[in-house]
Simulated scan of single mutants.
Amino acid sequence: MKIVVIGGSGLIGKQLVPILQKRGHEAVAASPSTGVNALTGAGLAGALAGASVVVDVSNAPSWEDAAVMEFFDKSTRNLLTAESAAGVKHHIALSVVGADLLPDSGYMRAKVAQEGLIRAGKVPYTIVRATQFFEFLGGIAESGVVGDTIRLPTAPFQPLASADVAGALAAIVEDAPANGTVELAGPEASSVAEFVGRFLAATGDKRTVIADPQARYFGAPLDDRGLAPVGKNPRLGPTRFEAWVGQRKA
């Protein structure tokens, strides 16, 4: 079947498209670089013609509060409208575990708004909420820099490899629409501070990580639910952190 991956040239999209192609699907990478712009609507009608499934793994170019809200609002509205016209049977959107628990984050507010549009729309859907990716651990470390140290929350954390996200999305493509939410997480759980400390040690970064219950996550406070799955049966990626580090070094 034809599957259009919105954001197909990004971190997840460029891994998802070849997986789908190997499974025998007609997978199309759609992004501004290929002439498809969900934010403006340009190229959507042509890209979605004949498509059965659309997977939206796009991300906002700017995370400033107003800009990120505009991106997810407009692009999602344009996608849903184009999908309805094209007869798309399944809309899959990648979101973030615990997005509704972080109202102080403009990015998370935008993701919650995106999810609301999808739920209210006419296209059958699956919202896939993933925990943070191993690839983002360096950025999380930099967000907590205070002088010569890195101060990060002690809240629960269960990140996963981006390759495992792509693999899970490929399987969900072949499932019936859940008309609900699926959670993805990594196989190991610890605190934000501990996991980032492991990342820094693995990359030879000698800076000290201070575990601080009051530290914020990109400006947002975390409660005891942290950035871990909130449901009882999340899908767990198979790749453990040490294996991911070994793959990167190789």
Rank of each mutant, 00 (worst) to 15 (best):
G13Y: 05
G116N: 15
D104Q: 15
T76I: 08
L94W: 00
R216P: 00
A141H: 07
G144C: 06
P177W: 14
G87R: 14
E115L: 03
V55W: 10
Q114M: 15
H91Q: 11
G231M: 08
A215P: 08
D73L: 14
K74A: 11
P103K: 11
P221H: 11
V68P: 05
G237H: 03
V54I: 10
P213M: 06
P221C: 14
Q158V: 04
P153E: 09
V4S: 13
G226I: 10
K232D: 14
F134K: 08
V128H: 00
D224C: 07
A168P: 01
A171C: 12
G231W: 01
W63F: 15
L169G: 07
Q132A: 05
L169D: 05
T76E: 08
N78T: 08
A45F: 06
T181Q: 02
P156E: 07
G197F: 05
K89P: 03
V96I: 15
S162M: 06
R151M: 02
K2M: 03
I6E: 00
K111V: 00
R151E: 09
G121R: 14
G147H: 13
S105R: 08
E135P: 03
V173I: 11
V209Q: 08
E183P: 06
Y107E: 04
V28I: 14
V230P: 03
E70W: 03
G43T: 10
V28G: 05
S162N: 15
G41D: 14
E142F: 00
A110R: 00
V57I: 05
L102W: 02
G24F: 06
V53K: 09
V54M: 11
L222N: 04
F134H: 06
F157Q: 07
A178G: 03
S31P: 04
L48C: 05
P124I: 12
P238V: 13
S52N: 08
P156W: 03
V145A: 14
G246I: 08
F241R: 09
W244C: 06
A166W: 01
D164E: 12
Q247C: 07
K22M: 01
V173N: 10
D100L: 05
A38S: 14
L80W: 07
R129Q: 13
E174H: 02
W244R: 07
L101N: 10
G43Y: 11
R129P: 09
S191L: 01
V4D: 02
S190K: 09
A170K: 06
